[in-house]
């Protein structure tokens, strides 16, 4: 009986207190599985972010359907600041290719956090020594070079941009998510795929070949890998990850989220941790991020149109 009294006391103490935001845990929806790039980045980010916010932030993995399942859930959540969404470029491409009905305009941008430059990567059993050899081959035999990609998402758009800029034709095979794509590369079941610096260990061991990186200048970590621009292919590409909240979230809540994000994203320790994931911290505030999304959206729409994938 004593026990149940104690329990009763706890129950009473649990009654909701209407304190200032946040007075209960905030759900950060990551629309991909646990252990993926997005998940790892936000689980790192979340620690300092929640400290600065003065509440608990819970990373909730809601994966499936090219990342659109989580997006749908985030969009349908009440705009009270207790649900925020970890977005990346795939929101534009999945919208325009008709995979999902969720657009970036269903959300209010909080901040841009990171950018992960894409690297065109080849399987170990492919005969090519460099990007030039690959492109020559692809040109000679159009539609035979296989590319693994999450169809309609970033890993599909990046090679598609290369395809267009270099005037070649690839054959796409659906491998959803980085992990599946990398496995297929390791086993040479596909010829090419988009990857990033997190795969450096495998590239060093000769298990995959970095052909070219889609940055403006070569990266210090991989000085031997040329940029696509050097090869005369005018493509720059990175996966940009930011935070958004459902449309209609109150301004004071948005301001709090924005301030916490600014502090956590610009913390030098975070940049150091991100380096290990081949990722650059690229912070923009809500205003800057809105402009960024708008521009990115237009680029993606154009791209989808040129690829013949535009459904809207």
């Amino acid at each position: 009986m004593k026990n149940s009294l104690a329990i009763l006391a706890v129950a009473l103490a649990m009654a909701p207190a209407h304190a200032a935001y946040p007075d209960r845990p905030i759900k950060l929806i990551v629309p991909w599985g646990a252990g993926g790039d997005t998940d790892v980045i936000y689980r790192t980010f979340q620690q300092d972010f929640q400290k600065r916010l003065g509440g608990t932030v819970v990373v909730a993995n809601v994966g499936g359907a090219s990342g659109t399942k989580g997006a749908k859930e985030a969009k349908d959540s009440p705009p009270d600041g207790y649900t925020i969404f970890a977005v990346h470029d795939s929101i534009h491409s999945t919208y325009y290719t008709g995979v999902a009905d969720v657009n970036w305009t269903d959300f209010q941008p909080i901040c841009l956090v990171t950018a992960t430059p894409s690297i065109l990567t080849a399987a170990p059993k492919t005969p090519w020594k460099d990007a030039k050899a690959m492109l020559a081959d692809a040109k000679a035999k159009p539609g035979t070079v296989t590319v693994g990609a999450t169809l309609g998402s970033t890993s599909h758009f990046f090679p598609a941009m290369v395809e267009k800029a270099a005037g070649v034709k690839f054959k796409y095979v659906s491998y959803e998510g980085t992990a599946a794509r990398m496995n297929a590369l390791l086993g040479s079941h596909i010829d090419l795929a988009e990857s990033n610096l997190t795969q450096k260990g495998k590239a060093d061991a000769g298990q995959m070949k970095f052909l070219a990186i889609a940055t403006e200048k070569r990266m210090a970590e991989i000085p031997n890998v040329p940029t696509l621009k050097e090869l005369g292919i005018d493509v720059e590409y990175a996966v940009n990850r930011g935070l958004v909240a459902p449309k209609g979230t109150p301004p004071d809540v948005m301001a709090k989220l924005g301030a916490a994000c600014a502090g956590a994203a610009t913390n030098p320790a975070f940049a150091e941790q991100m380096k290990k994931h081949g990722t650059i911290v690229h912070y923009l505030d809500a205003k800057g991020y809105t402009a960024f999304l708008k521009k990115n959206d237009a680029v993606n729409k154009q791209l989808a149109k040129e690829l013949g994938l535009l459904k809207r």
Binding site: G35, V40, A179, G201, A205
Partner: peptide, 24 residues
């Protein structure tokens, strides 16, 4: 770095969180 199931996928995430690259 190939997760056998959801559990090992999370463990793989733990490796990378600690900055350890899985691979040969």
């Amino acid at each position: 770095g190939i997760p056998g199931d959801a559990v090992t996928a999370v463990m793989l995430g733990a490796l990378t969180i600690h900055g350890i690259q899985s691979g040969p």
